[in-house]
């Protein structure tokens, strides 16, 4: 009997998504009292659509862990902007672009996509998606630290996405 377990996790992700969407509705309507009753229509409809378009995977997203990562991510993405601005304004244009391949332990599509998006906002790196050899990362300047930095970043995000320690990928 695996059915009850499956439906429980489905209910949990539905509740999580409904809470997020409800919050979005409140913010979008500016907390206006007149718009409040419509939440009974919009949130269930949006939750159903979201479950249909992106069914929850076997590894749940830990929202609180993700939120906890946000301040650090903001600081690093500011550094990313400063780095690009510095290179853009520098008279000699210090850009030596190159590609590196990075193996990733992110196993499902959404986790990998978010990891790629995060990478693209960090200093000097830009993700161009995955292939059989892992992720393709474009660097403004290939240095020895790039791989280490990406590894640390991946470790942080992998915990928020409950990715297991297992190596390789199972094409989720």
């Amino acid at each position: 009997m695996t059915l009850p377990a499956v439906s429980f996790s489905l209910l949990l992700s539905a509740l999580k998504r409904a809470a997020l969407l409800g919050l979005a509705w409140l913010v979008l309507t500016g907390g206006e009292f007149g718009a409040l009753p419509y939440i009974l229509i919009t949130v269930p409809a949006a939750t159903a659509l979201s479950l249909l378009l992106l069914p929850p995977g076997p590894r749940p997203l830990r929202l609180l862990r993700l939120v906890a990562l946000f301040p650090g991510f903001l600081v690093r993405s500011v550094m990313g902007g400063v780095d690009v601005a510095w290179r853009a304004f520098h008279p000699r244009l210090p850009v030596k672009p190159g590609w590196i391949h990075v193996e990733t332990r992110m196993q499902d599509g959404p986790a990998r996509a978010l990891y790629g998006a995060e990478t693209s906002l960090l200093p000097g790196t830009l993700s161009a998606g995955c292939d059989a050899r892992g992720m393709k990362i474009h660097c403004l300047e290939v240095t020895d630290h790039t791989r280490e930095r990406l590894k640390i970043e991946e470790e942080r995000l992998a915990r928020a996405f409950s990715q297991d320690e297992a190596q390789g990928r199972d094409d989720g």
């Binding site: 902007g81 690009v84 244009l93 850009v95 672009p97 200093p123 000097g124 830009l126 161009a128 403004l140």
Partner: peptide, 20 residues
């Protein structure tokens, strides 16, 4: 405008603008 190749330009677009 200044970066030498398409992917480097994409860095500028993605990071600088959103910080602004």
């Amino acid at each position: 405008l200044r970066f030498p190749d398409t992917h480097s330009r994409l860095h500028a677009l993605t990071k600088a603008d959103n910080l602004g």
